[in-house]
Design a protein around this nucleic acid. Structure first.
Lengths: 109, 109
DNA sequence: ACATTCGTTCGCGATTCGCGTACCTTCATT
DNA sequence: AATGAAGGTACGCGAATCGCGAACGAATGT
């Protein structure tokens, strides 16, 4: 599962095995093993890979299948953060208003 | 890191080592090793533990400090919608700028 | 033609896994 | 007090898996 996701993400970003290996300070063959399924990354490596790919460990491990989960802002079911800090409910309301207004202007052109 | 989180969560739920071991179909001593830091759970076990505790693998691994899932806007891992319509990448950038500016003003008060 | 980069595979030594077992407390029952 | 069940901890063992370097073919650039 993780091997598939790693391979997929890396190809999309057009990164080489060597590049990732360098980022994590491991051997190219080691990372190659992750993608081929021949080896399993350490928990620490999983964490670093998630950061590198800009995704979550949950996605890499297949704890969630949603690669790009769709979140409807007007029905807030999930916590939003910016720079790690929570976005308040009031702010979300403002964001929605902002988006709607922007679209409104676009539509009148 | 994971040992600390596991121990913390288990104690809060008042579960015994044996109970968790049974749930995952592993030996009590194996799970005990996870909590003591003497052993590291497999990726599969991490996934199951996250499910069992009702949290995320990101939290267990220390990739985040949030027990409940949250969406970081500055990372392009999520598709956002407002009124069912996708929020574009550019718009998200604007939202982030908006939030940051707002916070900046708050901080200068 | 040659060198470089990329991805794949393998063997090796070292590490770490998961298990059973033993041990010590604590607590409830007799 | 004696017994036994249950929770938590620590250890030794064989087996499994790790990370690495090396070697290889294919593709590309010089």
């Amino acid at each position: 599962m993780i091997s598939k996701r790693l391979s997929e993400l890396r190809k999309r970003k057009q990164w080489s095995l060597q590049y990732i290996a360098d980022q994590l300070n491991i051997a190219k063959s080691t990372y190659a093993g992750y993608e081929s399924g021949y080896r399993q990354p350490s928990l620490e490596a999983v964490k670093e890979l998630a950061t590198l790919f800009g995704t979550t460990t949950d996605y890499l491990l297949g704890a969630t299948d949603e690669e790009q989960p769709s979140i409807e802002l007007t029905r807030p079911t999930v916590r939003l953060t910016v720079d790690g800090e929570a976005v308040t409910e009031d702010e979300i309301i403002q964001l929605i208003a902002f988006i709607r207004a922007k679209r409104d202007i676009e539509n009148k052109k």
